[in-house]
Write a protein that binds this DNA or RNA. Structure first.
Length: 422
RNA sequence: GGAGGAGUACCCAAGUGGUGAAGGGGUCGCACUCGAAAUGCGAUAGGCCGGCAACGGCGCGUGGGUUCAAUCCCCACCUCCUCCGCCA
């Protein structure tokens, strides 16, 4: 959520930012309603001031044995007008809040301007895509070949976009989770195992709602949502709190299952592990002083990259353009891992600085000193990294000519084997 | 799921319809002190909204209601505690 005062003071800046994002928001309409709201609020407050004064007078009269009947009758009318004004005010407030909740964040000045992912800029590459002396198999064929991934039975038991991992496949998921958490912990990330369901307010807090309700799974008969990422519960950990500046920055890492309805993704990535309704992910979340958040974004991205480097998986870092940037983010680096079967780099991590956009929604603040006014923290997060896509990347990048999978050295202590298959 | 109890500030806690929401601890400031402790004095309901400001409004878990006026009365909900039931 943007700062209402900022929107009012700098509407042209906001308009420009929205245009860069190709976001359609009726800013003039919003400002008009917002002005009405403030006018009505002032009138309502004035009426309330009158009523408060009159009530005090009634109390005084009654105490001294006087007759307050006339004043009471007068004030009753004021009360009725207040009620009427408040009803109209509530409607206007609901209106402005709804619009404000659906205005995306303003991209940082360093974000490349462009319509879509074609305008993303490559920042750096690590590793060399391997040249295969044989035609590499896609991960889903390798997974079925060694009976470590079972898509058919998952479809039978649950439906499309679900998977059973079996044997060393299940072990590989578990190994990756442990490996990643163990890698992040020494860098100051306190591990969190969060609830996999949250209420509506938390989804609003991080920006998934109200605009993207179709993308989320709602548990029928409840107000709970399955989390699309651990970002939601972990960022909301400190909602409605005022943190001590000395406690910042706060780093958390969290493993969770993630659930996504993938609305609008029909026909895309239908095979394999790339796009599932349920997948595992280790997430990194930071709470930072505003002045440090861009430095924190760089180190967060480096911490996510460390995972791929340790697993010897070639990747590149791209900076998302204004047209490709997520709703809540001011700046995002995607890590894209090399996937031989696609002959392409595919997203495996997304590292973002949300500045105070989520903090304002979730009301997460900090205080610099005992007498200082609270300020909003900056929140950041990044996948560190998506487990399912890492499994896909390992199977494809580490396959041998006979179709076995050479386990990356860093993972062997967790796997207990050097090869999968054979 | 059932029965009972409770939610007031950083913590404990009083307040049962009427101007300022007691008191204590803690914290901050000042005094005393070489310094600290102890002591004394003072401050301390955060915060949010509107306003250039003066100031006004909101705020006792949340949302409604009754009333000229609600921390207080009524209704619903949320959370926590105790007991019962069920349960990995």
């Amino acid at each position: 959520m943007l700062d209402l005062k900022f929107v009012r003071a700098q509407p042209e800046l906001v308009r420009e930012a929205l245009a860069k994002r190709r976001a359609a928001v009726d800013l003039d309409g919003f400002l008009r309603i917002e002005e009405q709201r403030r006018g009505l609020l002032a009138e309502t407050d004035a009426l309330k001031a009158r009523r408060n004064k009159a009530s005090e007078e009634v109390a005084r009269l009654k105490k001294s044995g006087g007759d307050a009947a006339v004043l009471v009758a007068e004030t009753r009318e004021v009360g009725e007008r207040i009620r009427e004004y408040e009803t109209r005010l509530a409607a206007l407030e609901e209106n402005t809040r709804q619009i404000l909740y659906e205005i995306p964040n303003i991209p940082h000045a360093s974000v490349p301007v462009g319509e879509d992912e074609d305008a993303n800029t490559e920042i750096r590459r690590w590793g060399e895509p391997r040249r295969f002396a044989f035609p590499p198999l896609p991960h889903y064929e390798l997974g079925e070949k060694w009976d470590i991934l079972d898509f058919a039975r998952a479809a039978k038991v649950t439906g499309a976009r679900f998977t059973f991992a079996k044997g060393l496949g299940a072990r590989l998921e578990r190994a990756l989770i442990s490996f990643m958490l163990d890698l992040h912990a020494p860098k100051g990330y306190t591990e969190i195992l969060p609830p996999y369901m949250v209420h509506r307010h938390s989804m609003v807090g991080t920006g998934q709602l109200p605009k993207f309700e179709d993308d989320a799974f709602r548990v029928a008969g409840t107000e709970y949502f399955l989390i699309p990422t651990a970002e939601v519960p972990v960022t909301n950990l400190y909602r409605d709190e005022i943190l001590d500046a000395a406690a910042l920055p706060i780093y958390h890492c969290a493993y969770s299952a993630c659930f996504r309805a993938e609305a609008g993704a029909a026909g895309r990535d239908t095979r394999g592990l790339i796009r599932q309704h349920q997948f595992n992910k280790v997430e990194l979340v930071k709470f930072s002083l505003p002045e440090n958040s861009y430095a924190e974004l760089e180190s967060l991205t480096a911490d996510a990259e460390a995972v791929l480097q340790a697993l010897e998986l070639p990747y590149r870092v791209v900076c998302l353009s204004t047209g490709d940037l997520g709703f809540s983010s001011a700046k995002t680096y995607d890590l894209e891992v090399w996937l031989p079967s696609f002959d392409k780099y595919r997203e495996i991590s997304s590292c973002s600085n949300f500045e105070d956009f989520q903090a304002r929604r979730a009301n997460i603040r900090f205080r610099r000193g005992p007498k200082e006014k609270p300020e909003f923290v900056h929140t950041l997060n990044g996948s560190g990294v998506a487990i399912g896509r890492t499994v896909a990347a390992i199977l494809e990048n580490c396959q041998t000519e006979d179709g076995r999978i050479r386990v990356p050295r860093a993972l062997r202590p967790y796997m207990g084997v050097d090869y999968i298959g054979g």
